[in-house]
Simulated assay, not measured.
Amino acid sequence: MAEPARRPGGGGAPGERLGRSRGGFTAKLHLSADGRCRPLSLIVMAGQRADCTRFEPVLEKIRVPRPARGRPRKKPVSLAAGKAYGSGPRRQYLRRRGIRHSIPEKTDSQAARQRKGSRGGRPPGFDEDLYKKPNAVERVVNRLKQSRAVATRYDKRGYVYLGTATAAALINWLRT
């Protein structure tokens, strides 16, 4: 039987969600969290991939069940994110979905906008009060990594690791 094709530039087979880095094979856990530090959606990707490429898929996976009858909520009321997610396409995506956001502008984007003068447009809106809680995701990752299997990634396949991380997320939800 033929061995599955490897990705260009190294990394494991496509189902493993492993990427090559200086330290060896790695994986990233991309997630969204609510204000109470509970994970809402999880995605596992190869470690060398850029974080901003998983922004839209993570937001698309959000499903918050309603206490009464009805379909689950699919979009957050507001969003706080880091500078890495401050590009134009990400902001357009959030505007299109009607999600209020607070993302600081990158210094190089700010300089380019100011260089253009009046043609550069207005600076994007930034709500400092909303941005004060962006570390909720980091706190969720720290809680998930209290599970040894999530922290060290013993699982070879990406879907198995996602299942392990989901189990740790469920435990996190039950504790809060």
Rank of each mutant, 00 (worst) to 15 (best):
residue 4 P to H: 09
residue 5 A to I: 11
residue 6 R to L: 14
residue 9 G to R: 04
residue 10 G to H: 01
residue 12 G to R: 00
residue 14 P to R: 15
residue 16 E to T: 14
residue 16 E to P: 10
residue 20 R to V: 07
residue 22 R to G: 03
residue 23 G to V: 06
residue 26 T to R: 10
residue 27 A to D: 01
residue 27 A to F: 02
residue 29 L to K: 05
residue 30 H to N: 06
residue 30 H to Q: 03
residue 33 A to Y: 09
residue 34 D to F: 02
residue 35 G to E: 07
residue 37 C to G: 06
residue 37 C to P: 00
residue 39 P to R: 05
residue 41 S to W: 02
residue 41 S to Y: 01
residue 45 M to A: 14
residue 45 M to Y: 03
residue 46 A to W: 09
residue 46 A to M: 09
residue 46 A to D: 05
residue 47 G to H: 01
residue 48 Q to M: 06
residue 48 Q to F: 05
residue 49 R to K: 01
residue 53 T to R: 06
residue 53 T to I: 02
residue 54 R to M: 14
residue 54 R to T: 11
residue 55 F to V: 03
residue 56 E to L: 00
residue 57 P to S: 03
residue 58 V to Y: 01
residue 59 L to V: 08
residue 60 E to M: 00
residue 62 I to G: 07
residue 62 I to V: 07
residue 63 R to F: 02
residue 64 V to F: 09
residue 65 P to R: 10
residue 66 R to H: 14
residue 70 G to H: 06
residue 71 R to K: 15
residue 72 P to M: 08
residue 73 R to T: 07
residue 73 R to Q: 12
residue 74 K to E: 11
residue 74 K to M: 08
residue 75 K to N: 06
residue 78 S to D: 03
residue 79 L to F: 00
residue 85 Y to V: 00
residue 88 G to R: 14
residue 88 G to F: 07
residue 88 G to A: 09
residue 89 P to N: 09
residue 89 P to W: 08
residue 91 R to W: 01
residue 91 R to G: 04
residue 92 Q to L: 12
residue 93 Y to A: 03
residue 94 L to M: 06
residue 94 L to D: 05
residue 95 R to C: 09
residue 95 R to V: 03
residue 96 R to I: 03
residue 96 R to G: 07
residue 97 R to H: 10
residue 98 G to W: 01
residue 99 I to K: 06
residue 100 R to W: 04
residue 102 S to V: 02
residue 102 S to N: 04
residue 105 E to M: 05
residue 105 E to F: 03
residue 106 K to N: 10
residue 106 K to Y: 03
residue 107 T to L: 13
residue 109 S to R: 15
residue 109 S to C: 11
residue 109 S to M: 13
residue 110 Q to T: 14
residue 111 A to K: 12
residue 115 R to E: 11
residue 117 G to T: 12
residue 119 R to D: 13
residue 119 R to F: 04
residue 121 G to P: 08
residue 121 G to L: 07
residue 123 P to M: 05
residue 124 P to V: 04
residue 125 G to I: 03
residue 125 G to Y: 03
residue 126 F to P: 15
residue 128 E to R: 13
residue 129 D to C: 08
residue 131 Y to A: 04
residue 132 K to V: 06
residue 133 K to V: 11
residue 134 P to F: 02
residue 134 P to Q: 03
residue 134 P to V: 05
residue 140 V to K: 08
residue 141 V to H: 12
residue 141 V to F: 14
residue 142 N to A: 12
residue 144 L to S: 05
residue 145 K to E: 08
residue 146 Q to V: 00
residue 149 A to N: 13
residue 150 V to T: 01
residue 155 D to E: 14
residue 155 D to P: 09
residue 157 R to P: 04
residue 158 G to L: 05
residue 159 Y to E: 13
residue 160 V to K: 06
residue 162 L to G: 06
residue 162 L to H: 10
residue 166 T to L: 10
residue 169 A to R: 09
residue 171 I to F: 14
residue 175 R to I: 10
residue 175 R to G: 12
residue 175 R to Q: 14
